[in-house]
């Protein structure tokens, strides 16, 4: 939306001077729209129209079926039913995603900082190291965690040897396992935007802060961190949004008690065949995430990200 707005005002501004030849101005005004056309068509065809259809499905009469067909009855109660029944799953999704985002930020920031500012000639190699796990499929990476956290795997036996108490005496099929999987799978989404914004950070600014007797801690919190905020915001969004909708980690690494809203949507669409309920849940999730993200971006105050 805002990208369109920027381009729009830009073209109007360029056309305003009265000495501009009319034909040239007109052509220029259309160029951005022509350039946007493929993207807009793509968005319309593969996002807007499916969304509208999903919205329609979410308002169908829930007593319909494939055999009898679904009637559009504007059944808004689908939403209240879905949210009431699955409030726990919603809460867990948001909670797990928030925790995942926090942990990836805590791990990812120092990592990105080290690569961008201290990486030197190893920079590219280190970046490849961050992205390399992406060469294998998401599923394989998650399944690998099953082996790592397995009941007689290395982690559990080490913790047992150290007499660290584990709930139910295991790690696999618990909440921490699900969060571990989420953190691992989404870490690169946090590191890369952080790296991109820290990479642009002019080291002379840090030098200047040092020259003005700023201690390293305040130099970080008053210079480096504020300047990298766009990266922090982009990274947290790229982590939080997909993590809230994820269900593979909960399914493979959790038990029924760790299931997230994605698991419910999956089972409603594919197993139960309750299409209106599933669509209502999907839409409610989208709305919840949108609201959270808007509030967050407003508070973080970095309009240039969105």
């Amino acid at each position: 939306m805002s990208a369109l707005g920027h381009l729009g005002t830009g073209s109007v501004a360029s056309a305003t001077p009265s000495d501009q030849p009319v034909a040239g101005g007109r052509r220029r005004r259309w160029v951005p729209y022509v350039l946007l056309l493929p993207g807009i068509l793509w968005l319309l065809l593969f996002f807007a129209i499916p969304c509208l259809e999903l919205l329609a499905t979410s308002l169908y009469d829930p007593s319909g079926s494939l055999e009898t067909g679904y009637a559009m009855t504007w059944h808004f109660a689908n939403y209240s039913d879905a949210v009431r029944e699955y409030a726990g799953h919603f809460g867990r999704s948001i909670g797990y995603a928030a925790l995942t985002t926090l942990i990836t930020l805590l791990i990812g920031y120092p990592l990105a900082y080290a690569i961008a500012l201290k990486g030197g000639r190893w920079k590219n190699l280190m970046l490849v190291g961050v992205i390399a796990p992406f060469f294998t499929s998401f599923l394989i990476r998650t399944l690998a965690w099953k082996v790592i956290l397995s009941d007689d795997g290395p982690v559990v036996s080490t913790l047992n040897a150290l007499h660290v108490p584990l709930p139910d005496g295991r790690l696999l099929a618990t909440g921490p396992a699900v969060i571990a999987g989420l953190v691992y799978n989404f870490l690169p989404f946090m590191v890369l935007p952080l790296y991109a914004s820290l990479e642009k950070l002019d080291p002379r600014l840090l030098e200047a802060a040092g020259d003005l007797y700023a201690r390293p801690v305040s130099r970080f919190f008053r210079v480096a961190l504020p300047l990298s905020m766009p990266g922090v915001v982009a990274g947290t969004l790229l982590t939080f949004i997909p993590a809230a909708g994820d269900y593979i980690n909960a399914q493979l690494l959790g038990t029924t008690r760790q299931y997230m809203i994605g698991n419910v949507i999956e089972s409603k669409f594919l197993k139960v065949g309750d299409y209106p309920g599933a669509a209502a849940l999907s839409f409610a999730l989208m709305a919840a995430i949108l609201v959270l993200v808007l509030v967050y971006v407003r508070r973080a105050g970095t309009e240039e990200v969105l």
Partner: peptide, 14 residues
Amino acid sequence: AAGGALAACGTAPA
């Protein structure tokens, strides 16, 4: 228009 499009939705019985 979106509302109209939605209202026209629904699936026929098989």
